[in-house]
Design a protein around this nucleic acid. Sequence first.
RNA 1: GCACCCGUGGCUCAAUUGGAUAGAGCAUCGGUCUUCGGAACCGAGGGUUGGAGGUUCGAAUCCUCCCGGGUGUGCCA
Length: 651
Amino acid sequence: MNPLSEIRARFSTTLSGMVDDPENLLSMIRPAGDSKFGDYQANCAMPLGKQLSRSPRDIATEICESVQLDDLCQKIEIAGPGFINLTIDDDWLKTGLTAALGDERLGVTRVTEPKTFVIDYSSPNVAKPMHVGHVRSTFIGDAISKVLRFVGHTAISDNHLGDWGTQFGMIIYGYKHFLNEAAYQKEPVAELGRLYKYVRKLMDYHAAVKRLPELETSQEELNSKQTELESTNVQGDKKAEKQLKKQLRQLKAKIGDQAEAVLALKAKIAEVDSDSGLAEDASAHPNINQNAQLETAALHEGDATNQGLWEEFLPLCRQDMQKIYDRLDIKFDYELGESFYHSELAKVVSDLTDKGYTKESDGAICVFLDNHNAPMIIQKRDGAYLYSTTDLATIKYRMEKWNADACLYVVDHRQSEHFEKLFDVARLWGFDEVELAHVAFGTVMGPDGKPYKTRSGDTVGLSGLLDEAESRALEIATNQNPDLTEDRHLEIANVIGIGGLKYADLSHNRGSDYEFNYEKMLALRGNTATYLQYSFARVQGILRRTEADVASIRTNPGEFIFENEVERQLGLKLIRFGEALDEVLVEYKPNVLCNYLFELSQLFAQFFDKCSVKDASSEDLKKSRLQLCDLTARTIRGGLELLGIGVLDKM
RNA sequence: GCACCCGUGGCUCAAUUGGAUAGAGCAUCGGUCUUCGGAACCGAGGGUUGGAGGUUCGAAUCCUCCCGGGUGUGCCA
């Protein structure tokens, strides 16, 4: 049991005697904001004072007299308007540490009421190369799944692959018209990838040719509007002047954006025009955009040829994708893609219609919701279904198959409105017991503060990203430790390269955008994976150097001794591993665990500096310090493991 | 137009969801140490949390308005 839950349990008894619902008050017990106030603080006396119209300090006194804390806290103080400051008792702490030492779970107790979570993450489109945008979903989802499992929940990870979408129409079209048979025999996935990109280029070309004149016209309009605004005379009227300025500024920004868009379109056109083969195919396939769509439609309608091709392509594409997951060491319990649900979609619509929740509008079948202007469309005018339909079928399946208590969707924050609607419709449909949560995350930004793109404006491919991270890591590993063998260098590069990438992502609050930066990601200092991995390796160094018998330390521990203040701080931090994990799950935020591990490593560095193990003044003290070392190493390793990050004994 | 999100030292980010003097890491400057792994430790400077009001014992956090930025917005996923 971690100190926080223990304190809350003790307070619970007292507070339930004072109010009906103590839950809210209990959440006001938390780690002290400043260590000079002690280890924990209870802030519940202030609101309680207000509620009961009494002096908060009196209430605080009353609470302190009633709560049973003798063994748990060595100091209890009331401060300021009514803060209750608590300092954990050293003996209690030492007992906890001793227990953690002999426990594989480091003293972290399992939840008393395990739940079943379905976590939907990663979800790339197969047959399209994975890119930097898939990184966050994959890492965050994986970390949350692991933490859920560790604390005792059932976590079912499900990779909801996009394996039924328009990209297959494109590939099928490409296969039928542009296939290089020899290349396909030799390296099928590479050839399919080429076909996808090839068709994409041709489609983009035609779309650009069509769009360009419209854009140029609108550009002219904007320009003339700018001239008009610039010549408007509003002198004397300050308010109008200000408004005009604002309008002009916004207009200029829009013109800039459009100019960029025009350039991008022109580039796409030029790319095709400058290549005689592409140009020829472009003019030979003027209706490629519509025809590719028709191939998709044919696939969905069960056309034998297309169905056969899809069945041929899919395993190849999935195999290819698996390579990336293997490099990242990410595994899923299930990979039920969109195709898995396609036979259920008609039933979703008919069922919702039978229950009277749908309405036809402009030929489409919709569910209208009170708190949204636009309805959720579940069947298009042409009869085709949408991803909202698939998502509904998926919820139904997950409830029937796994009876989930919660479904978490680790998806980019731009889809928040979609999920609001989806969850509303699901509840309307009858799935109102399950917790449905959109675990949203921000965008990965480039150094220019805009979404991370290559210089040519394309999204950044994931496999290239991993290559770059590992090759930079290799350079660092080689420079830092030239004596090691090349194999060792490669192993280190893999662990710190991939680990650095994951940690850079996970250590940011998932809700915020963050800037992608190789240097910072792999920096040897600061809040990075390398710093934590280095701390771990240093502990291993101590254990090696002192020839410590770790097994016997765990089974036959000696007393913990806090000779130096930092030893106590380190011990307290160690015992709070479980608190950090609980906190991660409150809002599904892995960065809480990152912060915890970083702070732990910083405390260890101080301990390392001040408290020599090798030259400890007595055997008892040396043993106590070895115990702290062992716990530190196991906590860092265990914590990083939950984040999907590895460690090395030597690096 | 409407809806949602964001704005925190020079830079990159935290802040346990309303708690005490807003914390880290880079960078800058200074210091420790003949290292149980220097990929270390200690210290200093640097902030009106975009601005103005309001709510209360207490606000980066909640409310209103303004400024600036982003995202989404009826048949893509």
